[in-house]
Nucleic acid binder design. Structure first.
Lengths: 172, 172, 172, 172
DNA sequence: CATGAATGAGGGTTCATTCAT
DNA sequence: TATGAATGAACCCTCATTCAT
């Protein structure tokens, strides 16, 4: 709280003029930083029914750009870090961010299946297959300071789609 | 520290006879809890050159079982949580755990390519494609308390291998 | 202060236009809430010289009704609570309330003695004997949440006058 | 808490090695300071059945001596002051001190009635008549800094017993 | 080798008070 | 006359670390 106050040019006490508690501050922070992104994903998924596979590619590209930004990825990092002491925050993040993003992805994935653009597989498995690698790369990059593939999101997504769409089995 | 001391049947002060600081304790904890697993992965990957793809499947299955255990997944969770304040811990975890596991995976993946079991793709992309979904599912399960696919690791791995090997494009 | 401001339909800052400090507010509060009562007691005692004993009974009955009201008894409670930190408040309360009430009581008690309605005893002892039990019952009721005799002030006073006038010695 | 720590020659944090919370500290303080007194009253009342009226006089004298001591009367003062913010403390004080003292008084009063030493009147009224004046005098003395009768407890009790036993009505 | 006792620095939070407008 | 915005000092409490024994 002290740090937040300092950044805002306020005293610690002044924060409590705007938020009733630390938890509320963090929820507002989540909402402000990543809420719009989850909402944007939902909008995009809804408006992209004409070509779901392309929409999926756009969503993935957007996601890759976002999590490449340390300031944005700081949010899930924070949530993971304090989820033990503040379970409400984890719950808030899940409900206001992750579940929205998941819903957007599921919508577009199921639309792609309906259109025959991708074959029918368990939806959750597909969701995992699309976000998991991005999430993992972000951790590797921001938490472990590994050499990152996130500085070229375009290429990262292409590789990922190549793997996921064509599969790893050698082509005949 | 208090809890750790209690578990060890020691006083808080006694911990400092064995470790110079909390950070050192955490590093030892990492080593003890997940060090052997990374080493085990390396051993397995080395001994599994006869059928790399099967070895990869075994590695993935093992990983799924491990991260399903809250006590084990607590370690990466912890690392992520405090990496901001204790970058040394992140570095330690990367060097002593993640890089070993990555190396094991890379070895087996490249062997599989060499044998023609999977087609040639950027190795990092393949690593991501295999670990990312598992890691993501673990976060969803342990941090966000989502309904988990980790209670059936076998099935989880099968779905994942189906997606990754055959790809999502509709079969002709 | 916040609550007081809200009740007054003012901002916290506006209070300081009317009062220099919290202490001053509390003094005004004391004056407003219980000042009139002490003054009333004095008036009553002055106008009741015809039958001092009956006046004493009326004063006691009034007192019992007042201290039964949590909103009124809140004032002496408050004074006791903060007298350690704010001796001025204690002094104010003593001079503006308690001494007036005591004077009223003493007047009427001495008049009763002069008229031969009660026998001559140390006046302070009589004052104590009349207020003490009421004050004690109020504490028991409002501070300790004990089962109260204050919900029937009439009966309380009757019992008390019976004890005090007739005494506890068995009658011959 | 800071003050308590300073007095004990400790840091604020050290208090929490001995007590789990502020409330616990206050409860211990109550127990240490006045718990024995309430217990002593019970013992005395139990052992004084031979002459209950004399026992009552002894109890009253003891009480007068105790509440004359500012250090002891500080306890009920404190309780009254914080009862609003810490209702548990009020409850604790009631159950561990006041109810015990009341029970002791009631025992001895009822024994005196049984023996015919005092006439039958509502017990609560008698309890009030005995402690109320003492309590009131203590407030007047310690809170309001009034001229006190407590510096001569013996005389105070004699006056009070004269009033209460013989009554205020003029003797024939 | 081990501990009980202690603490300084920090945590989140409240509140009487101030001041520019 | 009135306020919204702000704060310093205090509140209770926790924790990694130290040290005499």
């Amino acid at each position: 709280m002290e740090d937040i106050a300092k950044r805002a040019g306020l005293s610690k006490a002044a924060i409590y003029l705007y938020f009733p508690s630390k938890v509320a501050v963090l929820e507002a922070l989540i909402e402000a930083k990543v809420g719009p992104l989850a909402a944007g994903a939902q909008t995009l998924s809804a408006s992209g029914i004409a070509d779901p596979l392309m929409t999926l590619r756009m969503l993935a590209t957007m996601a890759a750009h976002r999590i490449a930004d340390p300031n944005l990825f700081a949010v899930p990092r924070l949530v993971i870090g304090i989820s033990g002491r503040f379970p409400e925050i984890a719950k808030y993040y899940r409900e206001h961010v992750v579940e929205k993003a998941r819903a957007a992805l599921e919508t577009v994935i199921e639309a792609a299946m309906a259109k025959g653009q991708i074959r029918r597989v368990d939806t959750n498995a597909v969701v995992r297959a699309f976000i998991g690698p991005l999430f993992f790369e972000a951790m590797w990059t921001h938490v472990l300071n590994g050499e990152t593939a996130l500085n070229n999101p375009q290429k990262l997504i292409e590789q990922q789609f190549d793997v996921l769409l064509s599969g790893l089995e050698p082509r005949a």
